[in-house]
Design a protein around this nucleic acid. Sequence first.
DNA 1: CATTCCTATGCAATGTTTTGCATATGTATA
DNA 2: TATACATATGCAAAACATTGCATAGGAATG
Lengths: 194, 194
Amino acid sequence: MCNTLHMSLKHAILVLLEREPGSGYDLAQRFHQGIGNFWRASHQQIYQQLKALSEAGWVAHETEAQKGKPDRKVYRITPDGLTELRRWMREPVRSPVLRDGLLIKVFAGDLADKQDLLSELDLQLLRQREILAAYRLREADYFRLGESGRRRMRLPYLTLRRGIRHARDLIEWLQETRELIERDALPTQPVAGD
Amino acid sequence: MCNTLHMSLKHAILVLLEREPGSGYDLAQRFHQGIGNFWRASHQQIYQQLKALSEAGWVAHETEAQKGKPDRKVYRITPDGLTELRRWMREPVRSPVLRDGLLIKVFAGDLADKQDLLSELDLQLLRQREILAAYRLREADYFRLGESGRRRMRLPYLTLRRGIRHARDLIEWLQETRELIERDALPTQPVAGD
DNA sequence: CATTCCTATGCAATGTTTTGCATATGTATA
DNA sequence: TATACATATGCAAAACATTGCATAGGAATG
């Protein structure tokens, strides 16, 4: 178990637990917030991985009884887990998997009804604008922090900047692409810049 | 079999076969080229999916004997496959999975040696610059096409534009992030634009 | 008082992707 | 003449991810 080189959901979990111990439920929330911008995981997946991490000895837990609510299992990273995390940090990352169904649809757009394709693009525009708005709120929170808070949250904020840029760039592409498809037009210029 | 709603590697393969029949090997090449910019697949995966697609009746193949080399199985999309592909084209896409280990490392950068983190960023910069250069060559090819060729390749080119933008944007982020980490500095302004 | 949502956990089955191996020949390079 | 690389296919096992279900009580809404 856990003998393959790259694994990353496990390490994403270890990173979160290194910052602060928490239950599977907590982790699911935190994935939905911060780290979830660049690594998504369902609660089932998190519970499965916590089990595997326990078996590997990289995390440990204590059960906390709660009145009314079900018990919480509060996980924390172990010294072995920290060692493993540091090892992983030194190893080069694999390039992220690219899997965007929307681009397949655009690529093969001739097979679809033009209106369908346009509404798909509109839907994505809507979603990305919502995502960007949420990121902008978090960014504003960051800039309301004092000097020391900003220093402490510097690295997470740098990853948020990546998310903001990504959403902003995707929105621009969606807009330009939508317009070209609607007008049945060809792009006249290469993508600007570098 | 094949009863789940969203599946996309299968559909990416169907899209390629709709454009032109080919063997598993051919498809692996084509993934590496065009569609591979937004959907990557190893040859093992392609062979597995071709088998599943055959069993579902969405593709069919004939074996072509070759002198010297092993036989090729040339796959083509069936009428049922085309029906399925059109159905899939009308269904909304799931949002792409985000899984970027580099961002986990930046997020948790305090655990790592600063030099390690910087060289990781440099490595990514190098890779992305190479990717961007390759995209730019393909873009130049596109603009050398005549009016009719450009019209025919319009949609694939629009997806290439997405790739170019993405690489360009990532490079900018990598540069700015690298510099901030090197200088131990805080970003002074929110990400510009919208 | 019924319905829905939130907290909190998890199993079982299925589906997808990766990893590691295996085969076989032709052509080009050192 | 070794060695490597490109063509061409695939199996088996493990790892990873998704889907659907299940439990259970409290708090809020209608």
